[in-house]
Write a protein that binds this DNA or RNA. Structure first.
Length: 421
DNA sequence: TCTGGGGTCCTAGGACCC
DNA sequence: TCTGGGGTCCTAGGACCC
């Protein structure tokens, strides 16, 4: 069996650990710029305030119910998450940290009473960290997730629910809405509802070939998992990242190229830090900017461009140089920009990249306006100049660059207001 | 003028997760 | 006035090569 250990209202619970007087009081934690509600205490959930609600839309409720409002503190949550995971580790041979607030705890091979062990997990995490958790138990990850939803649905379960028993499973899955199944998002839920499938049980019993056709291979795996067949296995160490994104909305819209340059340079530098933290090098760097998509009455513009360094790199100044060149090409004056970001892609192991180049970049004698280019050209010869902004190796790649909407689409000419980044 | 078959790589778009 | 920030996977189709 697998137990999913899920921290209740995680960010709110973390805040309460350090401010116990918040216990029992309605509490929300906000996203960046204090824009949206990203965590709600049970009291707030009971008021019907939805996850992701913009704060300004629920101001009245917040005032009326004296809801306590907190900005988010991600280093605190990351630290608390680690404490929870470390607490779980001695209690199971395999603990897979799935997200900041969830872990799959494998009970296979443990000679214990499963419900008793679930109570132990719950009690120990609460004692060691102060975080309340729910535990869902099932033979597959999807069923354990389903069980944890049910554990939270009724306080009489005291935070623990099991679908280990096949006979009880039918009743349990009948009670679970199909939209609450792991792997079924809003789009699939709507499609399934049109087909008359509204419960987890109905999805489990649906025709496999039909599911495969309508929901692709992932949907098929979900159904098999609901039937008790394991398709999603434990991943002990996370696979290396395929992309690294750093982006933020601005607190206030900006118009000037200089402001955007500052933001993009900062994002590039933070993204490069993340990159080096994972010992990776980036083969492509993308930069994107966008206006405020919620302001449908003001002119909209959004664009992105992908820039290719001559060689995969993890050097901050190279990545800043690339992204700033890209930015200058997509920047259009006269718009109120609300968001900017940098994405690093085509990631490879940094040990495969020529380290000495980076050593060279560190050295203070690089002097020209673009020390990165200097270093690259000294090392690889002047032809390496097809570096950065317009750097594509083949004529057809160049053509694609100018034809592909990804690189060139500007929405400001279109009647429909649509911003893509 | 019309016409093959097999393969790879890349991208866009759509879905999902937290 | 004020609306988050990361990620992944799958599929179809286009462009290329021989």
């Amino acid at each position: 069996m697998i137990a999913l250990v899920d921290c209740n209202n995680f960010y709110c619970s973390c805040e309460r650990v350090f401010q116990p007087e918040l216990a029992g009081r309605p509490l929300v934690v906000l996203s960046n710029n204090d824009g949206c509600i990203v965590a709600r205490s049970n009291e707030v959930k009971a008021m019907g305030i939805a996850m992701g609600s913009p704060l300004f839309k629920v101001r009245d409720l917040v005032r009326r119910h004296q809801i306590v409002v907190r900005s988010s503190n991600y280093s605190l949550y990351g630290d608390m998450s680690q404490r929870v995971m470390r607490t779980l580790e001695p209690l199971s041979p395999i603990v897979e940290a799935y997200s900041i607030d969830e872990a799959f705890v494998y009970l296979d091979g443990l000679k214990v009473d499963i419900m008793e062990h679930a109570r132990l997990l719950r009690r120990t995490v609460l004692q060691h960290t102060g975080i309340p958790v729910s535990v869902g138990i099932g033979p597959t990850k999807t069923l354990a997730k389903a069980a944890s939803k049910l554990a939270k649905s009724d306080p009489r379960h005291e935070g623990i629910f099991s679908v280990a028993d096949p006979a009880a499973r039918d009743v349990a899955l009948e009670r679970l809405a199909v939209k609450d199944v792991w792997g079924v998002g809003p789009r699939y839920a709507r499609m399934l509802a049109r087909e008359g499938i509204v419960t987890a049980r109905a999805l489990r019993d649906a025709d496999l070939a039909w599911v495969r056709q309508k929901m692709t291979i992932g949907g098929m795996r979900t159904v098999l998992e609901l039937r008790g067949q394991r398709c999603f296995h434990a991943e002990m160490e996370p696979p290396p990242s395929q992309q690294i994104v750093r982006s933020r909305s601005f607190g206030r819209a900006v118009e000037s190229l200089e402001d955007l340059e500052q933001a993009v340079a900062m994002h590039a530098s933070r993204a490069a830090e993340k990159l080096r933290g994972q010992h990776l090098a980036a083969g492509l760097a993308s930069v994107f900017i966008a206006t405020n998509r919620f302001k449908s009455d003001s002119p909209q513009y959004g664009n992105s461009i992908t820039v290719k360094p001559a060689i995969p790199t993890d050097a901050t100044n190279t990545l800043i140089a690339c992204t700033l060149r890209g930015l200058r090409r997509i920047y259009r004056p006269g718009y109120a920009y609300k968001k900017a970001g940098v994405m690093l892609m085509d990631l490879t192991s940094a040990t495969d990249a020529p380290q000495s180049l980076f050593a060279e970049l560190q050295s203070p004698q690089s002097s020209s306006l673009d020390p990165t280019l200097d270093a690259v050209n000294r090392r690889f010869g002047p032809n390496t100049l097809r570096y950065a902004a317009v750097g594509f190796e083949h004529p057809w790649a160049m053509r694609r660059q100018f034809c592909s909407p990804r690189y060139t689409t500007c929405w400001n000419e279109l009647p429909a207001v649509k911003v893509r980044v």
